[in-house]
């Protein structure tokens, strides 16, 4: 059974098309990278899968079920730019959010079990020392791990990440991808990214999105596909990206 099935999904913002007729099947325990240029609708697709955006047409199924019938299967790791880093909340409280139940209950307190799960996660992700720190006082890599811990606190089967390495240094970046690789043994992982180097090193498969889904499959892309997606000469994209991403690559490709 597929972990995620996206069928004929289109999203429009007003008259502006964000994504069109996207079909995508993600297998269980797949490690998928979704790449594409800015404004290609990558984040939109992620939000459709999460149920945050209602598509104009098409549907999303998670393990064969409608999104509404699934509960606590999806873990979401948003872009760090998506919230206020000055918000008065500490690491522990952010991760505990993942343990909240969907039904509102009066005078809710986190159970002992919630506390244990969260403490374990903080240990595992090397965040125990900063658990009382306000989130604005963390490094980019630490903050990213806090968000991963929060998603894992849900105990999800699938986790979806939006640009997890956008604003962190190389060291934390490889740390995060190794962590994801480890998590991948137990869960399905979907990452929206610009980071083509990481794609080659860690991912199983790749999906290329530019309004429409141009490719989904093996991570070894040929130049032609990449050029089609980005709609510009490959060299521009290959700039600063290790060459092994591309199966066929000629030095000095100029146009």
């Amino acid at each position: 059974m597929n972990a995620i099935e996206v069928k004929d999904v289109s999203v429009y913002y007003g008259n502006l098309c964000a994504i069109r007729d996207v079909n995508l099947n993600v297998k269980e325990k797949e490690f998928l990278g979704i790449i594409g240029p800015n404004g290609a609708g990558k984040s939109t697709l992620l939000k459709v899968i999460l149920g945050l955006i209602k598509p104009v047409s098409g549907e999303v199924r998670i393990f064969g079920k409608d999104l509404k019938e699934t509960n606590k299967i999806l873990g979401y790791i948003p872009q760090t730019s998506g919230f206020d880093r000055n918000f008065p909340i500490n690491v522990l409280d952010v991760v505990l959010m993942g343990r909240l139940k969907n039904r509102l209950s009066l005078f809710h307190r986190y159970a002992k079990e919630d506390m244990e799960i969260v403490t374990d996660l903080l240990d595992k992700l090397g965040l125990s020392d900063v658990r009382d720190r306000q989130i604005g006082q963390l490094s980019g890599g630490q903050l990213q791990r806090v968000l991963i811990a929060r998603a894992l606190a849900i105990e999800p089967k699938i986790i979806l990440l939006d640009e997890p390495t956008a604003s962190i240094d190389a060291n934390s970046r490889s740390q995060i991808y190794s962590l994801l690789k480890e998590l991948n043994e137990e869960m399905t992982i979907v990452v929206v990214t610009h980071d083509l180097a990481a794609v080659s090193a860690y991912f199983d498969s790749i999906a290329c999105l530019n309004k429409e889904l141009h490719y989904h499959g093996d991570k070894e892309l040929d130049e032609e596909t990449v050029e089609k997606i980005y709609g510009c000469p490959v060299e521009l994209i290959a700039h600063g990206v290790p060459h092994r991403v591309f199966k066929v690559h000629e030095e000095g490709y100029d146009d």
């Binding site: 979401y76 948003p78 505990l96 969907n102």
Partner: peptide
């Protein structure tokens, strides 16, 4: 606890239902 989650990150709160 719900207010705190909602105020801090509305999107995530929505994802967890």
């Amino acid at each position: 606890n719900y207010w705190k989650a909602y105020l801090f990150d509305e999107e995530f709160s929505s994802v967890i239902g």
